[in-house]
Design a protein around this nucleic acid. Structure first.
Lengths: 239, 239
DNA sequence: CGCAATCTTGAATCATTTCAACATAAGTGG
DNA sequence: CCACTTATGTTGAAATGATTCAAGATTGCG
């Protein structure tokens, strides 16, 4: 079931039945990846794109000193590498954080969509533009927010994104990331993530334990984060 | 003349004469913007996209404390807001750094392209995916590179991008940015940019004076930057 | 020419990193 | 199901890269 993708698309635009069918038809092949596995290697050509259905994945680049920077986190409903359709190879790798269920679509099939279904094409294009908007917000976080604001912002962002696909409730959501993972997303060290998590907890904003984010004070958290959700484009209109 | 766009597209794919004509036809309207002007306001709806023909522009977000983070720099041949075609409004503002010449294309015309010219559509989609690849690389810079590496990386990136449109030679290029601008791109303070520029100069890597980047030791600069140009996708193939 | 913007430098401060040690949790094989 | 082992989390103290503040020098513009 490509349900999470349809939920996501329907949060941003109106998906016609024929379009939903076309997507289901080209996304028939399913795969399961174990946790902590590289799924797409930087630079390698792949003839298909991957839609995440269940689990958590990320895009990342390795640095020469062994560090890595995660440039995106993916939740169900996200295409992790739809852009490989036009880029042909990727400038980053893609890996699973948890065990994942995915569906794949051949680039050949996407090409046919661009030739026959202009509105569906625009929706797919939109999804990659949404990715870019998230990249920009991460750039802002890394450039101008301190550690507490970065963490707070990431928690707010994931809350909003998981709500779209029905994987969060008002006071929190499951998040199977380690403190090392968070550090690699936020350009910090694991040690500092740990101290900053404690600070957020002591300030009564969020608690992160048992692989679950507990939002204690959403308003306060959003204030610390300077969270402005416009970059998530959560309005339903023709794209 | 949309020459710089055609040069850029031809660096990544092969533009058919009919496609070049179609682009020229929809990009007929020209405008001139003075330096340091906001061209697109965050959140405001605009029915057209802007192609930069001459000058330097940027995408940025303002922070509540008056700081700002630039998320992209644009050189001639770049669409500064092609993504507004599917996003409808932007999560960031766009401003000129220098006096700029631009061409504009109505979203209505872009929509027609998506309905009639699939390959041209894919090339435009590619351009937005290229933007996202640059965003990812900036995320890596801000997350994992120190000040010297960030500056070195930006100088390498701009060198490569300006060469595509014929605005750089082997040993450097014009760059009309202040140290404050560089600081806003790189998530640093102007003071630290100043000190880091001196350091790069003293190490014989680059010199930045008279609004010109003089590359003294390209190899050395790329090493400091850990510059891997794969994210610029400078190969010519069907997209 | 004169004023404003930009650049430059030093000294003190601050946020984050590093290193190191230990604690707790999770996963695996017997 | 326990025992072992490894991964993950926690805390302190010292070091470091970048910031802040402040003052003066230089450049560029009207």
């Amino acid at each position: 079931m490509i349900e999470p993708l349809l939920r996501k698309l329907n949060a941003h635009d109106i998906v016609q039945p024929a379009e939903a069918e076309a997507l289901a038809a080209v996304l028939r092949e399913r795969r399961t990846h174990p946790a902590r596995r590289v799924v797409v290697q930087r630079g390698k050509e792949i003839p298909f794109s991957t839609l995440l259905l269940d689990g958590l994945m990320c895009r990342y680049k390795d640095m020469s000193n062994g560090e890595r920077q995660i440039s995106a986190l993916h939740v169900p409903g996200d295409f992790v590498d739809l852009h490989s359709f036009s880029l042909k190879q990727l400038d980053h790798s893609v890996a699973t954080m948890t065990k994942c269920e995915v569906a794949i679509v051949q680039h050949e099939a996407l090409k046919r969509i661009t030739e026959e279904l202009p509105h569906l094409t625009r929706m797919l294009w939109f999804l990659t533009n949404l990715d870019a908007a998230l990249h920009r917000e991460w750039t802002v976080s890394l450039g101008r927010r301190d550690a507490a604001a970065r963490l707070a912002h990431l928690f707010c962002e994931l809350h909003a994104r998981l709500q779209v696909v029905g994987l969060a409730d008002a006071d929190g959501y499951e998040l199977r990331l380690t403190q090392v993972d968070l550090a690699e997303c936020l350009g910090l060290t694991p040690v500092h993530i740990n101290r900053t998590l404690r600070q957020l907890r002591e300030n009564g904003l969020v608690e992160y334990r048992n692989r679950r984010v507990h939002i204690l004070d959403r308003k306060g958290l959003e204030t610390v984060a300077e969270f402005q959700p416009d970059y998530l484009y959560l309005n339903r209109r023709e794209r």
